[in-house]
């Protein structure tokens, strides 16, 4: 009995205590950083779900597609980084327009599950199209984003922190701030919030739903590009990049589908929880638990708050 319980209930906490503060801090920091990366993907989901009620499974593939396009332009045409980014943004905007015109304009008023399936089809399409256009070999993102351990933190308090993760965290912070300003202060942003609140009311004051949806897909494409660059720099641009969508899903249900702060906080909780579980409980469970642990963690939160931490309260009427 003791042998069975010890590695789960006592040893991890004892280890955490003896690891204080350095290794434990490193674990938490790297968890926070990983969480920020998850949030980047989750943000795209939230934006689209809020505005159009589409559960966009293609967000991960969108990130892959953006990263593939970026590296494709840089490798094949020798374009400098800034130009490639501008071109990719333009392509993502064009893609947003196409997606809205060709797919979702024809699926207005369908059941949510049909829309979800359509985004899965979209995911297949983009995955194949990206590979056909730019080849399926693993590519490297050469944007000069610093990598390796941060010397400054290593020398000072002796913490091992990846530079890339710091860059990602700062970028995410800038992105979220920019998005918040965009939503709060600009005309389009206000229209977007109106649409998120109530489609019919928004239409009745003269907001074009179609235009807003294109904008939302474009913004999601932009977020996907940032996520693609960060994940691509970390582990190369390849098919597995699209699987980060699966990492972002528990973040989403934990934070709530409709909440931007939820995506951020959820990302941090999942990131830190996952890292700690992996380091302290992983060995006792035989490792590789990161695939399902995030889901179980999110599920535990959901049992208490079925709409996620920051999701709108579900009010049901007959």
């Amino acid at each position: 009995m003791y042998d069975a319980v010890y590695p789960f209930l006592i040893e991890p906490f004892a280890k955490m205590w003896t690891d204080m503060p350095l290794f434990f801090a490193e674990t938490v920091i790297s968890g926070v950083m990983a969480g920020v990366m998850y949030s980047l993907v989750a943000l795209g989901f939230v934006l689209i779900y809020k505005a159009s009620g589409i559960f966009n499974f293609a967000q991960g593939v969108l990130a892959l597609f953006a990263a593939l396009t970026l590296t494709g332009i840089m490798d094949n045409f020798g374009a400098p980084g800034w130009l490639a980014i501008i071109l990719t943004v333009a392509i993502m905007f064009g893609l947003a327009w196409l997606i809205q015109k060709l797919v979702f304009n024809h699926l207005i008023n369908q059941e949510p599950i049909i829309l979800f399936m359509a985004t899965l089809g979209l995911a297949y399409f983009l995955e194949g199209a990206g590979d056909i256009m730019w080849g399926s070999d693993v590519k490297v993102v050469n944007l000069g984003i610093p990598q390796g351990a941060s010397q400054w933190l290593l020398d000072g308090p002796g913490l091992y922190v990846e530079k890339l993760e710091i860059v990602a965290a700062v970028t995410a912070a800038i992105l979220v701030t920019a998005l918040t300003i965009f939503f709060q202060k600009t005309r389009i942003g206000r229209a977007l919030r109106a649409v998120a609140d109530d489609h019919q009311a928004a239409m009745s004051v003269g907001i074009s739903l179609e235009k807003i949806w294109i904008v939302v897909w474009a913004v999601a494409g932009l977020v996907a590009l940032v996520a693609g660059i960060m994940w691509g720099t970390k582990s190369g641009v390849q098919f597995s990049l699209s699987l980060i969508a699966l990492k972002a899903l528990p973040v989403l249900i934990l934070g709530g589908f409709t909440s931007v702060p939820g995506a951020i906080v959820g990302g941090l909780i999942i990131g830190v929880g996952e890292k700690i579980a992996e380091v302290y409980w992983g060995p006792a469970l035989g490792g590789a638990i990161e695939n399902w642990f995030a889901y179980m963690l999110a599920l535990a939160f959901l049992l208490f708050r079925p709409q996620g931490l920051f999701g709108e309260k579900i009010i049901e009427r007959v």
Binding site: M117, Y124, F125
Partner: peptide, 20 residues
């Protein structure tokens, strides 16, 4: 394989549009 993915994706979307 890639072309198959593209076609499969488009066919699924087409199908959902034509007969949900």
């Amino acid at each position: 394989k890639h072309v198959e993915l593209v076609l499969l994706g488009s066919l699924i979307i087409l199908f959902l549009i034509a007969e949900p």
